[in-house]
Each structure stands twice: as structure tokens, then as C-alpha cells.
Simulated assay, not measured.
Amino acid sequence: MKVRCILLLAVFLVARPTADCTKGSVPAIMFFGDSLVDVGNNDYIHTIVKANLPPYGRDFEGNVATGRFCNGMLLSDMIGEKLGFSSSPPAYLSPQAAGTNLLNGANFASAGSGYYDPTSLMYGLIPLSQQLKNFKEYISKLVAVAGSSQAQSIISDSLYILSSGSNDFAFNYYINPLLYKTLTTDHFADLLVGISIRTVTQLYGMGARRIGVFSVPPFGCFPLAITVFGFGSSKCVPGLNDDALRLNKKLNAAIDLLSKQLHDLKIEFLDIYTPVYILSTSPGSQGFTETRRACCGTGTVESTILLCNPKSTGTCPNATTYVYWDVLHPSEAANKVIVDSFAQSINQLVI
């Protein structure tokens, strides 16, 4: 088992002490969820939700589109970097997820997916339930590579990151009358939180003991949301952000309760709402200049290769000053701010 050292930066916009470099026993990382962490699984399934063409990846190593919904590195890449890994664990469906590469973990996420399986099935994505099945399959492969004893050690000592929930609201609940006419936003949030806790419990049952769960971001601040629901305003849509806050409050409370029930489980609520909201409403505070429009194309409706592609016009020359790369996803520069904001929470999981 390798001893890794985390260089943790000062937390974004709040007065907290810089964390010490901490030696942690994290041999691998496992990622589950959506586009905030998916490094390319969707490239290997039949779906329109892909990011495998330029300008996606234009600022990534090699300037190639890898399936990441970003101009460069994702949150998953940066978490791996902070934990001392030379690269992010590979997409589980990719050819790279084989042999000794499995020792560093794997990424099971599928861009566009949600906690609620029907959200994923609507768009031909990998449901969270299937991601867990893939993880179970991964364990078998890991045993074949490392042996039962080392595999068990890797599984129990690894860091697990779960990112989900946004798409359930944005691309299912808000547009699906079968949901919004039968369930209040509170009831739907309760449904999602229940699935999240069951997922964490299932991972725990398979050996996971260090789990970070992302909050949902302020999806009312996404450029697409402002374009569709802003009615000419250039500001975040309050009603959508209220739904995100309601879900986050319920999720945080449920995680806190679970941590008291499972005493050997290290679990942290990783707040991405706050840094994304601050970036979206006060971009200048961190050196950004544009938050209303995304970098790709006109910056108002472009996302996935259907609209953000080599034929997109007007894509910005420098994404480092843009909060959003496309109308739903942060730029690499914004991702760095987000990861720095919860560095101390990651530290609590790995020490």
C-alpha cells in the first residue's frame, strides 16, 4: 500500500487555516455519478451525451477530447492530483481499465446520469444502479490482478466520490409532467436523498469506508438555465437554486445521520454549491470576468457535441477567465477553485 501526501490549499473565500500535508493510506480512488467526474465512459456507449470532439479537451493534456465535459481537467482529475496520483483513474469502460491500472481505482461515472435511474435511461446513459454493478465486477477483476488480500485492502482503504442529482432535476423533473405533477420538489428531493443513502450503504456493504458525497451545484446559475428560465434576466434563477438548496440540506442531514449509525465509515458532504454560486455571482473575486455566457459558441445554449463541436462559432480564445466552459459545466479554472474549496473535507476522509 502506498503512502500518499496531500498538498491542501487554502479554502476559497473563507478564512480557514491552510491544512498540513497529510500522509494518508489511500491506494486508489473510485468515482461514481455524472459529468462533473466522468472521464469518458459515455464514449463507449450508444448515447448523444458525449464530449469526444473538439473543442472539448482543447486545454487538456495532448489537446484532445477525451469525453470530459470541460476544456481541461475535471474535479475527478484534480482530486486525483491532490492525492498524489499521476493521473485520474481510467474510465471503467475504456481499454485502459485493465491489468495493473486497476490498482489505482476506476471511474464508473456517466455524464448526464442521476440518482434516479429513469433519468439515465431517458438518454441511454449508465444508471447509478449499473455503475454499482460495474464496481462489483471491478472487484472481481481486482482480485484476479492483486490477489484477494491486497484487493480487500485496496477496497477498504480507497476514497470513493459520488456526484449526482443535478440531472434528475434539470433533465427529468422540470420537463417531465409525470413527475412534477405527481411529486412536489420536496418529495422528489426526498426520493433522491433516499437513493443516495442506499447507494452509500451498498458501497459500504462492498467494503468502502471513505466516501465523499457531492452536493448539487446551483443549477439556477447555469447559463442554459438563465437562458431558458431567466426571462431576459442575466442573474441566477432563484427558484431553481432554492430546489438545489433544499436537496442539499436534506442530503447533508441524511449523511450526518448515517455517519452516526456506521461508526467505522468516514463520510463527508462535499459542498460544491457554495463555490459555484460565489463564482457565478461574484466572478471578479477570483479573477474571472465572464459568468453569464459559457466559453463554447454563443455561450447560451451549447452543450454536448450536438451544439458544442468543431463547427461552433465564437468559442472564446481563453477559457481561464470563464466560469463555465459550456452552458452546464465549469471550466478547468473554475474546477480548480471548486476542488480547493473542499480540500479540508477530502483531508478528513484520507487521514
Score class of each variant (00 low, 15 high):
F85W: 13
F85N: 14
F85V: 11
F85Y: 10
S86W: 01
S86P: 04
S87T: 00
S88P: 02
S88V: 12
P89R: 02
P89A: 03
P90A: 06
A91V: 08
A91R: 09
Y92D: 05
Y92N: 07
Y92E: 10
L93C: 03
L93T: 07
L93N: 02
S94Y: 00
S94G: 01
P95H: 01
Q96L: 11
Q96S: 04
Q96P: 00
A97R: 00
A97T: 01
A97I: 02
A98T: 05
A98Q: 06
A98L: 05
A98I: 10
G99Q: 11
T100H: 13
T100I: 11
T100G: 08
N101H: 12
N101D: 11
N101T: 14
L102D: 13
L102R: 14
L103R: 10
N104E: 14
N104K: 14
G105V: 04
G105W: 05
G105S: 12
G105F: 05
F108T: 06
F108I: 03
F108E: 05
A109N: 05
A109P: 06
A109L: 07
S110E: 07
S110A: 04
A111K: 12
A111H: 09
G112L: 03
S113A: 13
S113C: 12
S113P: 07
G114I: 13
Y115D: 06
Y116L: 15
Y116T: 14
D117V: 10
D117E: 14
D117W: 08
P118Y: 14
T119P: 15
T119C: 15
S120Y: 01
S120L: 01
S120F: 02
L121S: 15
M122F: 09
Y123M: 03
Y123A: 10
Y123H: 07
Y123R: 09
G124R: 02
L125P: 06
I126W: 05
I126T: 08
L128E: 00
L128H: 09
L128S: 08
S129Y: 09
S129L: 11
Q130S: 13
Q131L: 05
L132A: 11
N134D: 15
N134W: 10
F135I: 00
F135S: 07
F135H: 05
K136T: 14
K136E: 15
E137L: 14
E137M: 12
E137P: 04
Y138I: 07
Y138H: 05
Y138R: 09
Y138S: 01
I139G: 10
S140Y: 02
S140W: 01
S140E: 11
K141M: 06
K141E: 08
L142D: 14
L142H: 08
V143S: 01
V143M: 00
A144W: 06
A144N: 13
V145N: 03
V145Y: 00
A146E: 06
G147E: 00
G147V: 02
S148H: 04
S149L: 01
S149C: 01
S149G: 01
S149Q: 00
Q150A: 11
A151K: 11
A151P: 04
A151H: 03
Q152L: 10
Q152V: 11
S153T: 13
S153P: 02
S153W: 10
S153V: 06
I154Y: 05
I155A: 08
I155W: 02
I155P: 05
I155K: 06
S156E: 14
S156L: 08
S156A: 15
S156F: 09
